[in-house]
Simulated assay, not measured.
Amino acid sequence: MGAGHSHSDGHRHGHSHAQADYGNAFMVGIILNAGFVIVEAVYGWISGSMALIADAGHNLSDVLALLLAWAASIAAKRPGSERFTYGYKSSTILAALLNAGLLLLAIGAILFETLNRIAEPPVVEGEKMAIIAGIGIVINAGTAALFMRGQHDINIRGAFLHMAADALVSAGVVIAGLAIMWTGESWIDPAVSLAIVLVIAWGTWGLLKDSVAMSMLGVPKGISENRVRAYFFALPGVEAVHDLHIWPMSTTETALTVHLVIPSGHPGDAFLQEVAHELQQRHNIGHTTVQIEIGHNDCRAGC
């Protein structure tokens, strides 16, 4: 049986997005949001606003999320070792999974206190509530803007979406504060808190689902296993395709291994290089390993 091997490094071929340095963006975002969490929590407690405290709890989880994303982005750039031959690229996946867990804890704590406030709505100072949340809109929107250019990196995109969503949540708190000022109805505050919990839960579910799938080496979103398989079958001389595996190495890099049965003989290095190039261009798979088998329909694990 003849065999061939090809490994395509996306950076070597110049098709993968380079790992941009967002260290300054993370630092500024963390400092701004950590400071705002303290201010928001204090004024939420003084004004009796559960909506402000709920938003502060969410913003605290975002500070931790930024810290985790930052640490993971740094670790992902470290080279491989004898034990971790892929390096620490998958740390970005672990960071996403941990962030989802932190958000679930925040949801539980906020929901518990909010339900108590619904049973006995306290007097809320709507004006302070609206002013502090208005500051939150500026800080969260400004932080989101720091990550606007990194949308090709799911890890960076997650930070952007987190902060953009927080800006919208803060806008909801402003609306609640103004409504309380105009109507004097304190029940509006816990009602908005519930809405905030729903917004957080919606985003958390998506993050949890995607991070669990990636941690279990699921085929990354945007890549179709059927289309990749069809591409291999369309190659000249390929009689069978088996042991096809596609998995995420990190939140931005994907790997693939496959066995191609070509009875006519090994097609040569040029063939393997072309396959690697096409997988990168068509399917955004930058790390490929292709084994050529010349035995007729040598399919051990199902084609």
Rank of each mutant, 00 (worst) to 15 (best):
G172N: 09
H242D: 10
I180W: 08
D189M: 12
T288I: 04
S170H: 13
L98N: 05
L104K: 10
N59W: 00
N24R: 09
I137S: 02
H266F: 12
A191F: 15
M181Q: 13
I107Q: 06
E120G: 08
T251L: 09
W187L: 13
A3Q: 12
H13T: 15
H17T: 13
V219K: 03
I262E: 00
I285S: 09
H5Y: 11
V228L: 08
A95P: 01
G23S: 15
E125D: 15
K77S: 11
N155T: 06
H245F: 09
V228P: 06
I139E: 01
M129V: 11
G206N: 12
L260C: 07
K128P: 12
A96N: 04
W202S: 12
R78I: 07
C299I: 08
T251V: 05
L94W: 10
D210P: 02
L256V: 13
H259D: 12
G10T: 03
K89I: 01
H245E: 11
A41P: 03
T183Q: 07
G29W: 04
G101A: 07
L256M: 15
L198Q: 04
G29T: 12
K77C: 04
P248H: 10
T92R: 01
S250I: 07
E293F: 00
L244H: 08
M148N: 03
H259L: 02
A201P: 01
E125R: 07
H296L: 08
Y43Q: 05
A167V: 08
N140W: 04
G203N: 15
M163Y: 06
H242L: 02
W205L: 14
I135G: 11
L115H: 01
L208E: 00
A106I: 14
S61R: 01
I262Y: 00
M216K: 02
A230N: 11
V138G: 03
L161S: 02
A96T: 07
R149Q: 11
E40S: 05
R229D: 14
W205R: 11
H58T: 09
H11Y: 13
F160G: 04
T85F: 05
I188C: 05
F271M: 13
F233W: 05
A230W: 01
V241S: 00
A20Q: 14
R149M: 03
S186Q: 11
S61N: 07
D210K: 11
L279E: 10
G108S: 08
V42C: 05
